[in-house]
Computed example of a mutant assay.
Amino acid sequence: MDDEEARTRLLDTAEELFYAEGIQAVGMDRIRAGSGVPLKRLYRLFPAKDTLVTAYLERRDRRWLGSLREAVTGAERPVLAVFDWLADWFAEPDFRGCAFLNAYGELGAGGPEPVLGVVHRHKAELHALLAGLPGSSPALADDLLILVEGATTVAALTPGPAPALRAREMAARLLSPTG
């Protein structure tokens, strides 16, 4: 196994365990055991747990935002397509809320700067994506971000597409000229 394969295995295992059980609940030995990567190589690739958590969140950010961008590109009503995409995500059997808010909730404002940096960048990039959609604006993106985050939090507590569909209705009212 080369370093690239080892890194992929470690990140796949870290993502599965951190997302399902939480960052603090999962130790590096469980990551090692689940990935099949020797401990020495794990610590060579990720010298500390914080570096692994940061890499996991960075990779998740790229995939999550990439998937959302793909879903809204070319959509007839891109703002509403955001919520359709969320409804599909919320219906996934392993849905457990927002990995970035989960990480922030676990680690708090005093958490490791690299991890918190990824969390803040992710939310800023999500806001920028929402602001850049046809028919949107920075001010509307503020409201849409609250709808996205609120729906995600509610869905983490009561899984299923309903929170996204309700937030979609609210977004449609925001887009309506009559409010």
Rank of each mutant, 00 (worst) to 15 (best):
G22K: 08
V37G: 01
G36V: 08
S35W: 01
L17E: 12
R44E: 15
D12T: 10
P47M: 12
S35L: 05
L45S: 05
F46A: 09
L39Y: 09
A48V: 15
G27C: 10
E16M: 08
S35A: 06
R30I: 01
F46M: 12
V26Q: 00
Q24A: 13
Y19N: 00
R41G: 10
P38F: 00
F18I: 00
G36R: 03
G36D: 06
D12I: 08
T13I: 05
Y43F: 12
G34K: 02
A25Y: 01
L39V: 12
R30W: 02
L10K: 11
V37S: 02
Q24C: 11
A20N: 05
L45N: 01
S35P: 04
M28Q: 14
L39K: 13
R44N: 14
S35D: 00
I31V: 15
F46E: 09
A14S: 00
R44A: 15
G22L: 04
Q24M: 12
L17R: 09
M28P: 11
E15W: 13
R44I: 03
D29M: 10
P47E: 15
L42G: 10
V26Y: 01
E21C: 05
Q24G: 14
E15K: 12
A14Y: 03
A33E: 08
R41A: 13
E15Q: 14
L39S: 12
Y19P: 01
T13N: 05
Y19E: 06
G27H: 09
G36Y: 07
A20I: 00
R44C: 05
V37K: 05
R44T: 14
P38I: 11
L11N: 05
